[in-house]
């Protein structure tokens, strides 16, 4: 399979105001194959945007390099950039111009002109379903419509590779669904390679052929979803919300010893929400088990015997959330 993006030892450090250095990306290695959707999944601040910015030539890496279609982004940036489209997380459009004017301007920057440009703009406006609003200023659009024009601007040069940095942030479910469908369409009908960043596990699961999980500037796991879930084994995950009673370490150890099939028990005590609100998050017990549903009655019985109130129970099949939790001890949304 042909490699479209190859990143080796990408690092990015920034200097803080106090003179100290912060390493935002710590040596990322990445291979993205032609025609696949590759998602970088991780919580906010994991280094996804910095990684994508380095691969797209927006930010110069402190160390390492990336190639796009064999062209180095640091040594042959023009050739590399001609092969890619870019859809940033922000609405990178001129709010004072109409959708059509924005697309025409960025199209001219790719060297398009005359009828060819006009045809391409027409196609993209149809593609993102904004024909009736094409001559309206961007600052009169809803969030979802802006996102669609933002996406269209990244497709002007019909690139074989497109970067999308959290393209569904802050939009309504309907617009989100439309964008996710469009991304799949780009791969399935146009054989486009997509590098997609998200902090939403559901999006990564729905879209991705392969996923790289990022945390604290590093890729901590990479592969197909099946490969990644295998890393945590064929375990189910039981999410149990408990009352305010403290689940001590002794209890979690006893559960692991006494109940067959349990591999790990994690307890997150309640945490106050805000300083003075008086409210707190519910206590949560996460139990990893080979056969979760079979072990569930015994788990409930043990907790009940220990005087722990059970408020809700959810059994989840192995997923990327579980992988992240297993690898970092934290939930993706934490």
């Amino acid at each position: 399979m042909k490699t479209m993006v190859e990143a080796r030892n990408l690092r990015k450090s920034y200097k803080r105001a106090d003179g100290s250095t912060i390493e935002a990306v710590k040596g990322v290695d990445l291979d993205i194959h032609q025609g696949e959707i590759f998602s970088l999944l991780g919580p906010n601040g994991a280094g996804k945007t910095t990684t994508i910015s380095m691969i797209s030539g927006l930010v110069a890496p402190t160390e390492g390099d990336a190639t796009i279609g064999g062209h180095s982004i640091t040594k042959q940036p023009m050739a590399a950039k001609r092969l890619m489209g870019f859809v940033p997380q922000e609405i990178a459009l001129y709010p004072e111009l109409s959708a059509r004017q924005n697309l025409a301007f960025f199209g001219r920057m790719y060297g398009l002109g005359g009828k060819k440009l006009s045809r391409r703009v027409d196609e993209l406006i149809e593609f993102v379903d904004l024909a009736d609003r094409q001559n309206d200023r961007i600052d009169t659009f809803s969030g979802g419509m802006k996102r669609r024009v933002n996406l269209a601007a990244g497709l002007l040069n019909s690139p074989p590779l497109i970067y999308m940095d959290e393209p569904t942030v802050g939009i309504d479910p309907q617009s989100r669904r439309r964008i996710l469908d469009t991304v799949k369409l780009l791969r399935d009908e146009q054989d486009m390679t997509v590098l997609y960043t998200t902090h939403l596990m559901e999006e990564a699961q729905e879209l991705s052929d392969r996923v790289g999980i990022m945390d604290h500037g590093e890729i901590i796991a990479m592969g197909t979803q099946a490969e990644l879930t295998q890393q945590v084994g064929e375990e189910d995950r039981l999410e149990i919300t408990t009352g305010a009673q403290n689940v001590g370490e002794a209890l979690t150890e006893r559960m692991q010893q006494d109940i067959a099939g349990l591999t790990r028990v994690l307890y997150n005590p309640p945490e106050p929400i805000g300083e003075n609100s008086g409210e707190s998050t519910p206590a949560r017990l996460t139990v990893f088990a080979k056969r979760g549903r079979t072990a569930l009655p015994q788990i409930i019985q043990t907790l009940d015997a220990a005087g722990i109130d059970i408020q809700s129970v959810e059994v989840r099949e192995p997923d990327l959330e579980a992988v992240f939790l297993a690898l970092t001890g934290r939930a993706l949304r934490d």
Binding site: G57, L58, M78, K81, R82, F86, E90, I91, M109, Y110
Partner: peptide, 13 residues
């Protein structure tokens, strides 16, 4: 508003 960054991502020096 990231229009400068979008220009940076285009094949322009």
């Amino acid at each position: 508003q990231w229009t400068l960054q979008r220009l940076m991502a285009l094949p322009l020096s």
